[in-house]
Amino acid sequence: MVTTVPIFLFLSWLARVTETLVLNTIRKEQLEKQAVEAELTNLKSQINPHFLFNTLNNIHTLVYKQAPAAPEAVMHLASLMRYMIYESNAATVPLAREMDYLQDYVSLQQLRYKNSPVVDLQIAGETEACYIAPLLFIHLLENAYKHSPARLEPGDLKVRVQVKEDTLAFSVQNPIAKKAANPLEEPGGIGLPNVRKRLSLLYPDQHTLTIQDKGDTFTILLTIHGLHVPTHERQAHLLHH
């Protein structure tokens, strides 16, 4: 009895200490997760006002000039806003849907130009079976327009999207304007810090972001590895083939 009681008390104390450590670890992980989610929400919310400001300016110009393209511009904006408000709240979306969003944006921007499409967009791979964080590429495309010359020739902006197995490669290249709107601004615009931060939170150790400034062209290449392909999408793809 003399030896059993101390052992029992020690085991009881050890159990309480272990339980406290486990609970503290769980609470810490929950707090860290909530902090990351809050920061991601904040970063995503920064996209909307910046994007809307530029787009509404474009539409205002069309309406002011009473351009026939104004109603079409409003429809494109409605499609973009539908995606941003109702669909981009999900953690991931099909890459194909994100590409539809970018193509709507390109169509809206093309209303500013009278010549052939200034964007050469090429997509390769199974975009339906690849899921990606929403609103990840819009800043990169916005900045390509922003830092290009006012007059763009057909195909001056080159956007490439390629999916191979669980790897996504996204690149955008634009000619550099001789006189930047703001010489003090970081090449690539204010969107790059936002994109870098989101990538570090969403895809730590899964991505590379390469920037090439050749003086006359500016290129951004984003590669993301280990993307999740839902089981039902993979099975459907195998059955299709």
Score class of each variant (00 low, 15 high):
44 K>N: 07
35 A>K: 12
25 T>D: 12
23 L>W: 02
21 L>K: 12
53 F>P: 00
45 S>N: 10
39 E>H: 11
33 K>V: 06
36 V>T: 07
30 Q>P: 00
32 E>V: 02
29 E>Y: 09
21 L>F: 08
26 I>D: 08
42 N>I: 02
50 H>F: 04
25 T>K: 11
34 Q>V: 05
35 A>G: 10
52 L>E: 05
30 Q>Y: 07
24 N>R: 15
37 E>G: 08
41 T>A: 07
26 I>F: 12
49 P>F: 04
25 T>H: 10
39 E>Y: 12
42 N>G: 08
34 Q>E: 08
53 F>I: 06
49 P>V: 04
46 Q>C: 03
46 Q>I: 09
43 L>W: 01
33 K>N: 05
40 L>T: 03
38 A>I: 01
46 Q>L: 06
19 E>A: 15
37 E>L: 12
29 E>H: 07
28 K>N: 06
44 K>T: 07
22 V>C: 07
53 F>W: 02
28 K>Y: 13
23 L>K: 15
36 V>D: 10
42 N>W: 13
41 T>N: 08
21 L>S: 11
40 L>V: 06
38 A>K: 12
45 S>E: 05
37 E>Y: 07
35 A>F: 02
26 I>H: 12
42 N>L: 09
36 V>H: 02
34 Q>M: 11
54 N>I: 01
44 K>H: 05
40 L>M: 06
33 K>L: 04
53 F>E: 03
19 E>W: 11
52 L>Y: 01
40 L>C: 01
34 Q>H: 09
27 R>Y: 04
48 N>I: 12
48 N>P: 02
49 P>W: 06
36 V>A: 09
25 T>V: 09
32 E>H: 08
30 Q>G: 09
40 L>H: 03
30 Q>F: 06
29 E>P: 03
35 A>C: 04
38 A>P: 00
26 I>N: 09
19 E>F: 13
30 Q>E: 13
32 E>T: 04
46 Q>D: 06
50 H>N: 09
20 T>G: 12
36 V>G: 03
29 E>W: 14
48 N>C: 09
22 V>D: 08
39 E>M: 07
46 Q>R: 15
42 N>C: 00
28 K>L: 11
53 F>T: 10
53 F>A: 05
25 T>M: 11
32 E>Y: 06
47 I>A: 01
44 K>A: 03
52 L>G: 00
42 N>R: 15
32 E>Q: 14
48 N>K: 13
21 L>D: 05
32 E>F: 00
26 I>G: 01
49 P>T: 04
19 E>D: 11
38 A>G: 08
21 L>Q: 10
29 E>V: 07
45 S>D: 01
44 K>E: 01
48 N>Y: 08
22 V>R: 10
53 F>H: 06
41 T>S: 03
36 V>M: 06
54 N>E: 04
45 S>M: 11
44 K>I: 02
36 V>C: 09
34 Q>F: 04
31 L>I: 14
20 T>N: 13
19 E>Q: 12
20 T>H: 12
38 A>Y: 00
30 Q>T: 07
27 R>L: 07
40 L>G: 04
44 K>S: 05
37 E>C: 09
28 K>W: 08
40 L>R: 01
39 E>W: 09
45 S>W: 01
49 P>L: 03
